[in-house]
Amino acid sequence: MRFDVYTPLLVSLLLPLVSPVIGRRVAPAAAARVLASAAVLTAAAGAWSLVLLATALLGDAPPVVREAHEDGRALADPVPEVIGVAACVALALVVRRVQRAVRTERRTRRALRRLCEGHPRDTELVVAASPVPRAFAIPGRPGRILVTSAMLGALTPAERRVLLAHERAHLRHRHGGLVTAVTLAAAANPLLGPVRSAVTFLVERWADEQAATEVGDRGTTARALARAALSAGSGCALNFADRAVTRRIAALQTTPPPSLWPAAAAVLALGVGAALFAADATSDLLTLLSDALP
């Protein structure tokens, strides 16, 4: 347990380092999936490691120590007491951060769904009269696409097809769930914040590629993204951010990157490894506690 329990921390440091490389070299769909999966596994393993470190304090409980002394048993100390106490504090912070992230996600989704109230359930596209250019894919059953009249007015007919194809790709591939999962992972483990940013960008690139394939013109897709960015300014139409504009447009002006599943699988193996080491640490701790507890 002395080493295994800290492995998720090491993986938490490695994932942010490899995520930019995977994002550049691997197809967006594959990269987004493996980075999100690895982040969720690592965050879960890290939280469980904190539970293990906190549980190790049971071996220092006065009744346990007294019983061991009376029986002449030697108590193994898997972790220093200060680390166990720190793990308890960290675990409380993790629970608080995850609860806050869940509340934020729920509020955002409720607010978006309220904008679609009053429309038939089978209506996919909802156009809101607004002078602010915006476009959203709203997950749910059914999923909806919310676009403002200002955004539609800023685009040509061909660019509108790109916009709708982009948002449909978000719904079809459940990008909302993917981003939510990695957001909760980053809430549980702040070290994974860069991985969340990478996945958020990659799902947009994924939707860009899907839109380009559907309309059959990468140039038109790039122009639609550029026009949407100029129209929305610093807003969130097509989830544009100033830093991402040139990267996404440049990517559409080149050939799509290969899937490179071996590299993607190696990243996923990091998350799986963190989970396996946490499981091994659990087994070690159970053995120690069975020897220590009467």
Score class of each variant (00 low, 15 high):
Pro63Arg: 01
Pro63Trp: 00
Arg66Lys: 00
Asp71Thr: 00
Asp71Met: 00
Arg73Glu: 01
Ala74His: 09
Leu75His: 01
Leu75Asn: 01
Leu75Phe: 02
Leu75Ala: 02
Leu75Pro: 01
Asp77Ala: 07
Asp77Glu: 05
Asp77Asn: 00
Asp77Arg: 08
Asp77Tyr: 01
Pro80His: 09
Val82Phe: 02
Val82Ser: 03
Ile83Pro: 00
Gly84Arg: 02
Val85Asn: 07
Ala87Leu: 04
Ala87Asp: 06
Ala87Val: 06
Cys88Gln: 11
Val89Ala: 13
Val89Asp: 05
Leu91Cys: 06
Leu91Arg: 06
Leu91Gly: 10
Ala92Asp: 07
Ala92Lys: 09
Ala92Trp: 04
Val94Leu: 04
Val94Tyr: 00
Arg96Ser: 05
Arg97Asn: 08
Val98Gln: 09
Val98Ala: 10
Val98Glu: 04
Val98Lys: 07
Val98Trp: 03
Arg100Met: 05
Ala101Ser: 12
Thr104Gln: 13
Thr108Ile: 03
Arg110Tyr: 01
Arg110Gly: 06
Arg110Ile: 07
Leu112Phe: 14
Arg113Cys: 07
Arg114Met: 08
Leu115Cys: 03
Cys116Ser: 12
Glu117Lys: 04
Glu117Phe: 07
Arg121Thr: 13
Asp122Ser: 10
Thr123Gln: 15
Thr123Arg: 14
Thr123Val: 15
Thr123Asn: 12
Val126Asn: 08
Val126His: 07
Val127Pro: 02
Val127Asp: 04
Ala128Phe: 05
Ala129Met: 08
Ala129Lys: 10
Ser130Trp: 04
Ser130Ile: 02
Ser130Arg: 00
Pro131Lys: 09
Val132Cys: 04
Pro133Lys: 05
Arg134Phe: 13
Ala135Met: 11
Phe136Trp: 15
Phe136Met: 13
Phe136Val: 13
Phe136Gln: 11
Ala137Trp: 10
Ile138Phe: 13
Ile138Cys: 14
Pro139Trp: 08
Arg141Asp: 15
Gly143Leu: 14
Gly143Met: 12
Gly143Asp: 13
Arg144Ala: 10
Ile145Arg: 12
Val147Met: 10
Thr148Ser: 08
Ser149His: 08
Ala150Ser: 03
Ala150Thr: 02
Leu152Asp: 06
Ala154Pro: 07
Leu155Arg: 03
Thr156Phe: 01
Arg160Glu: 14
Arg160Thr: 14
Arg161Lys: 10
Val162Ser: 09
Val162Cys: 05
Val162His: 03
Leu163Cys: 13
Leu163Ala: 12
Ala165Asp: 09
Arg168Met: 14
Arg168Lys: 12
Ala169Gln: 04
Ala169Arg: 11
His170Trp: 08
His170Arg: 13
His170Phe: 14
Leu171Gly: 12
Leu171Lys: 08
His173Gly: 05
